[in-house]
Design a protein around this nucleic acid. Sequence first.
DNA 1: CTCGATCCCTAGAACGTTCTAGTCATTTCC
DNA 2: GGAAATGACTAGAACGTTCTAGGGATCGAG
Lengths: 348, 348
Amino acid sequence: MPPTPGVPEGKRPTLADVAARAGVSVALVSIVMRGAKGAGAATRERVLEAAREIGYRPDARARLLRSNRSRLLGVQFGLQQPFHTDLVEGVYAAAEPAGYQIALSAVAPSRGERHAVETLLGDRCEALILLGPQAPAALLAELAAQLPVVSVARRLRPAVPGVDVVRTADDEGARRAVDHLVSLGHRDIVHIDGGRAPGAADRRRGYRTAMNRHGLADRARVLPGGLTEEDGAAAARTLLGDDPRPTAVVAFNDRCATGVLDAFLRARVPVPDEISVVGFDDSHLARLAHIDLTTVGQDVRRLADLAVGRAVARLEGEAASDGETSGNETVIAPHLVIRSTTAGPRNG
Amino acid sequence: MPPTPGVPEGKRPTLADVAARAGVSVALVSIVMRGAKGAGAATRERVLEAAREIGYRPDARARLLRSNRSRLLGVQFGLQQPFHTDLVEGVYAAAEPAGYQIALSAVAPSRGERHAVETLLGDRCEALILLGPQAPAALLAELAAQLPVVSVARRLRPAVPGVDVVRTADDEGARRAVDHLVSLGHRDIVHIDGGRAPGAADRRRGYRTAMNRHGLADRARVLPGGLTEEDGAAAARTLLGDDPRPTAVVAFNDRCATGVLDAFLRARVPVPDEISVVGFDDSHLARLAHIDLTTVGQDVRRLADLAVGRAVARLEGEAASDGETSGNETVIAPHLVIRSTTAGPRNG
DNA sequence: CTCGATCCCTAGAACGTTCTAGTCATTTCC
DNA sequence: GGAAATGACTAGAACGTTCTAGGGATCGAG
């Protein structure tokens, strides 16, 4: 470790070090580093030069401590959920232009939501963006009493005061999937659901509604599934045993659908010739050439934009008006992405 | 937002608020909150009670600012890489008992490593744990001049001074995969590689070494692959065209192997009957019942433990001795996990 | 009963920033 | 040519913690 000249050993350079080297006051260096106005062009250059020389880097924590605004958004996400990691990327992208930073906190089997949220609060986040939170409404309400909270992809019924919700119209998505299959000639359409996962109830309902509308209420069938490949595969295996097999499956999400596909391939049941499969999310997975899954797309980028937007609006609106604190729900439309896992049934 | 009695409107409660309510000094509250000794049992209880009442929560940033130790480890990871997210979970688990916190910074298509690292440095992390970093050695060296850096899964040749490396013996892993296949009777074994990905070169070399040892040098064949399912599927499709098809494939990683499996299933080439497939990583994917992939396991938990351990050792050793600053490499052995995608060749 | 020790507690100075309220030139305007 | 306005800069007080020095009690030992 080469010691940088003019800087105390073993410590990171601070504003004071830069100031000493440039021969100006600490306050002026602060002005220059922030790019605020109030410094002459020549001095500005000299300060920047000094900072570069000693390798100065602003201390985010001290900065946040001083300014009462932290401009920090806390994001809770599931480490193992591709849909979440897609969203996180979108959130990063949306936060930057709005002038906010992101603090990530992961949820994993060994690290509960409670713990994740505690960390974010300790970091002085100004608002919380929770991706598919499973926490009970009471806890969310408690959080919302302290700071703006946005729940992404998890609907809250009844609405929790202070918690904004941004989600895709899951019921409509499921309806579209069914409509698509019916228009191809399918009648025996089964739904493999997501249990208690966020959005699962709505997708289930959307499926039933659509089946009813098409006069297929008596053929409607919901199989317990889940959000992993294993869940999908397990459900698919029970389907394989049926004698008049259904001709189409609407799965809870893409991972689940992938599991279904795999089980069918293994059993030599050709997709989509013998059976059609529709997923949900339009995640990376679905787009892969060798999976090429027909699926209901959620507009991840838009969800992320809206989530950040809601949080920022609360933050910046509240300072002025302290207006309505009731929970606000933004629902965006899903879109069907037709790829190669759906086709007309063999015996039209 | 119900205003909490006794706390200034719109502000989070601070040590001073708790102190006022409990009728003690700020310093004593600090002592109690940290669980340090120097407070009487009765007072301690009273302070905790007061803190609970007004909903006090320590400010991580102020805390870190004051104590010259931040006890914060910065972790850079790839959002879309399951192997990384597995590692992150392990790092969380390893850091807590050591008394360190984790700051996450994601790398994504829209967010480069440079940016990710900048953020971590601004957060005053004491050390950096980089998962599979792609950054040039020069940049790593520059970082290492400022703080301890651990590279996980990426080997550095030549060693970069100050950068510790923790990795699996990739060459040995590939060798074991080949040994396993040879012991089953395979001779035509092809390797689908990972290009420039961390570890790819070693796995390629291990494959070649093993083939040589078994006197199969002339049958050795490396196909360009990559680290995604698509890469694997593409490589598999070229294999399908071969006339005497190889009887076994060693893929760069599990995702790649999954792509291979899928391409074969689609082409009605039964695995493992016609062809065996081995993956690498033993990630979630490989363990799924319907994939059930034979693979070379990396001990994720151990890698994470060691990475945290190295970082902490540097941090705590250096304060005392300021000993060797040369890069240190820890290599751990992989292990073969035999599942159902490997078997003897049809025409043994 | 006095001297240390021990225990509980407090005042006040850090930490590295930003912000407020200036100071001192220089320019602008009538 | 004097007041007002602008511009470049600075001193010093925050922000919410932790840490360093103590200050008084209380207690046991001589």
